[in-house]
Write a protein that binds this DNA or RNA. Structure first.
Lengths: 204, 204
DNA sequence: TAATTCGGTGAACAAGTGTACGCTCAAAAG
DNA sequence: CTTTTGAGCGTACACTTGTTCACCGAATTA
């Protein structure tokens, strides 16, 4: 068998093992090398053929989680085309992803304020992408000034991610109730930003 | 010397040692018993005379952090009496506390989405107090319906805490810029909630 | 004064950790 | 076919970890 392919395969085994362990209550920095290799079914020392550190593996996982996040955005956008309530659709999509990919979101939301500066930075980068895309959308779709759009987007993302973190602890029905609250709260922000934008227009 | 007082004193030494270690990049659950006792200058086994677990110590720390939070609220309220911009004053007070008591806030903000369910629960209890007090204030001061007040308060607290988490990574000047953004974003929420309240009034 | 309580200690244990080193043996290169 | 490469393994080492146990000695009680 192809040597390169084989290596890639065990590398994936390591990544999968880490994700499996993360499904429990563990965080990235509490994963031990030996734990991971045990789960992956390889010798502890083999780990070093793929990553020089557990931290390096951690950054890889954050990157993969970022991919999921971008996938989420794409899905939300594609749904908005057909359906008209942008906010409702977006929140629904977000919550759906949290249910389906709970391990990935747990990873992101935990490491966002976790102990490792490197992880925090990596997550914050991903969330920035998210915010930037929303900002662009608001400028184009709602014809807001870039300043107000950016403030609005930032507030909305913070609110949604914060609610997402809460959602991880909740049952399916509680999650739906939370969704309704979040939708209303987002509408507060939209309405408020509109009012500010109108005032800005008038004063010009 | 009084035996009881002496015991209290070493108990405090343990708590102080834990806080000192937390000033680094460590989280509650990554603190080890021996680490703590080493820092406190006592024998590892002495720890058990005061706490049966490191987790039990952790909950004590969260409680102490909650005290600081309530102190913050009191301070903010007392300042609002004299000054008129409620939002500006509150955000300033919050950011000031984050600067001064950064370890405490790091603890709260980290454990809020940390690995331990017990810690998460304890923190969420403290944040709930915070939200509830703000809700009451909004009902009394802004004459909002309890439903809208609660939604508004929840959104505001989520936004402020989320910004607080960001602030921990920033320099003093960046923090002031962030404060300005947050104040505007909070005004979005207030304006938006007002609009919704007005609509509710009309429809009745 | 004599007896008891109890906070703090040191030694010891089993279990877990990261990592260095040299080996195998099949794939890749010559 | 021979040589080189390199992924994976086993052993070993030095550490750290939580917890048990019997013990000391001063403060407290009788």
């Amino acid at each position: 068998m192809n040597r390169q392919a084989q290596k890639q395969k065990t590398r994936q085994k390591i990544i999968d093992a880490a994700f499996t362990l993360l499904e429990g209550q563990k965080s990235l920095s509490s994963l031990s090398l030996r734990e991971i290799t045990r789960e992956a079914g390889i010798a502890p020392t083999s780990f070093y053929r793929h990553f020089s550190n557990v931290d390096e593996l951690g950054l890889t996982l954050v990157d993969e989680a970022g991919l999921t996040l971008r996938q989420l955005m794409r899905k939300a956008r594609s749904r908005i085309q057909s359906n008209h309530s942008v906010i409702q659709t977006s929140v629904d999509t977000f919550m759906e992803y949290i249910s389906q990919q709970s391990t990935v979101f747990r990873l992101l939301l935990r490491e966002r304020s976790g102990n490792s500066a490197a992880f925090r930075f990596a997550v914050s980068r991903e969330v920035s992408h998210f915010t930037q895309e929303l900002t662009d959308f608001l400028i184009k779709d709602n014809r807001l000034s870039s300043e107000i759009a950016s403030l609005q987007a930032e507030a909305m993302v913070k609110l949604v991610f914060s609610a997402g973190a809460d959602a991880l602890e909740l049952t399916e029905v509680e999650r739906q109730q939370l969704s309704k609250r979040v939708v209303t709260q987002l509408r507060f922000i939209v309405k408020g930003a509109e009012a500010f934008a109108a005032r800005d227009q008038r004063s010009k």
